[in-house]
């Protein structure tokens, strides 16, 4: 089972990100479960959503406490929420930012997580470029696809089109592609051997 935790703020589409992620995984023929951290949070408040991906039907209903991957939609949460709780050193971490980690005072992360599993992505900018709205979720799901290989870009595109009808879906697909290229590029210089392999092969890692 592969478990993902997504952090963001109310109104940033965190739950949608988990949903799209699960839809993409479902499209890949796997079982997926997406669910929000149930609460009464309002716009702007920190929120969390989860996603599980497995080859088998997923029975458990407990929250994701030790995720295999972390997606942070809003890096400003870093000082308010224990974003890294339960994360193992081999976990994937995808941060929505256009700045280098050092510039954000997050140089620690580079030491704590594997370099090929830690990645930043200016998802909000991609979203603004393509959709005009600061909703980084579609881009980050694609970034996640690029980073982890758990889902394919094609599946993400399909899920986005399913989730967002018409032109909005297409614009999100465009943002997703930009993010996918960005993440792929930023990981490219590294040793291809450590590059994640798409889908099934990797599933056994969990």
């Amino acid at each position: 089972m592969f478990q993902i935790r997504i952090h963001g703020r109310g109104g940033q589409g965190v739950v949608t990100a988990a949903e799209v992620l699960s839809m993409a995984a479902f499209d890949g023929g796997r079982h997926a479960q997406a669910f929000p951290s149930f609460g009464s949070e309002r716009m702007g408040a920190p929120v969390v959503a989860f996603c599980r991906i497995d080859e088998r039907p997923i029975r458990t209903r407990e929250p994701v406490m030790e995720p295999d991957a972390l997606i942070v939609q809003d890096i400003t949460l870093i000082h308010q929420v224990d974003l890294l709780a339960g994360l193992a050193p081999e976990a994937y971490v995808l941060l929505n930012t256009s700045k280098p980690l050092d510039a954000l005072g997050l140089g620690d992360l580079s030491r704590r997580f594997q370099s090929d599993r830690l990645c930043t992505c200016p998802a909000t900018e991609f979203a603004l470029d393509q959709t005009g709205r600061p909703m980084p979720n579609a881009a980050l799901v694609a970034g996640f696809a690029a980073l982890t290989g758990q889902i394919s870009l094609t599946a993400v595109e399909k899920a986005l089109r399913q989730r967002f009808a018409g032109p909005i879906g297409e614009r999100n697909v465009a943002a997703a592609n930009a993010a996918f290229r960005h993440v792929t590029r930023s990981l490219a210089p590294r040793d291809p051997a450590t590059r994640p392999v798409p889908t099934q092969a990797h599933a056994a890692a969990d």
């Binding site: 988990a18 949903e19 699960s22 839809m23 479902f26 079982h31 997926a32 479960q33 997406a34 669910f35 929000p36 149930f38 997923i58 209903r61």
Partner: peptide, 12 residues
């Protein structure tokens, strides 16, 4: 059906 746990879960 369990609130949130089922109602808000997205699955196959």
């Amino acid at each position: 059906m369990d609130g949130f746990i089922l109602t808000h879960a997205i699955e196959g």
